[in-house]
Computed example of a mutant assay.
Amino acid sequence: MEVFFTILFFTAIWAAVGLGGPSLVSKEHQQDLVRCIFLLTAVCCWLFWLCCYLAQLNPLIGPKLTQDTVRLIAKAWNHPITEG
């Protein structure tokens, strides 16, 4: 449940940056460009954060092999095992 609240919290922060950021800029003739920049920045930062956060929840760790299995694989691949 805490994962859901964390994602919701940071989504709200980046939504505030994307939606509230353009209101901090003065009215200029390039207001649409500034609004687009704020929105793209918020979306890209949020997506980057989300990918990093979710990757840490389910890390890609390989299987733990026993020493006998490693020796068997090395023998099958004709690779000498060095003790160290």
Score class of each variant (00 low, 15 high):
L47I: 06
N58L: 04
D68Q: 08
C52M: 15
A16G: 12
N78I: 00
L40E: 09
E83Q: 10
V43N: 03
H29G: 13
V3F: 08
L47N: 04
P59C: 05
I7W: 06
P59S: 07
A76F: 02
D68I: 04
L8H: 08
Q31S: 12
C36K: 15
I37R: 11
V3T: 14
V70M: 03
L39D: 03
T6W: 02
V34R: 00
A74K: 00
G62Y: 03
Q31H: 01
H79S: 01
L39T: 11
R35V: 10
Y53K: 03
K75T: 07
L39S: 07
S23D: 08
I7A: 09
C36N: 15
L40R: 10
W14S: 01
H79Y: 13
W49I: 00
T6Q: 06
L8K: 12
C45H: 01
V25S: 03
F5Q: 08
Q67K: 11
A55K: 08
Q30T: 13
T41N: 15
L50H: 04
A16I: 11
M1Q: 03
L60M: 11
C52T: 13
K27V: 13
I81T: 10
P59I: 00
T11P: 06
F5K: 01
A15P: 11
A12C: 15
E28P: 01
T41V: 14
N78V: 02
W49Q: 02
F48A: 15
T82S: 02
L47P: 04
V17P: 02
W77D: 06
R35N: 12
G20W: 06
T82C: 05
E83K: 14
S23W: 13
L57D: 11
L24M: 13
Q30V: 14
T11S: 14
L33D: 10
L72A: 07
D32K: 13
P22L: 06
S23P: 01
L54M: 15
T69N: 00
I73C: 01
T6V: 01
Q31A: 09
I61L: 14
L40G: 14
C45K: 03
Q31W: 03
G20Y: 05
A12S: 14
A74E: 00
L50Y: 12
V25R: 02
C51Y: 11
L54T: 05
G20F: 01
T6A: 09
T11I: 10
Q67T: 07
C51D: 14
Q31M: 12
L8V: 10
V43F: 08
L33Y: 09
L57Q: 15
F48C: 12
L40S: 11
C45R: 05
G84V: 14
I61S: 12
G18I: 10
C51L: 15
V25W: 00
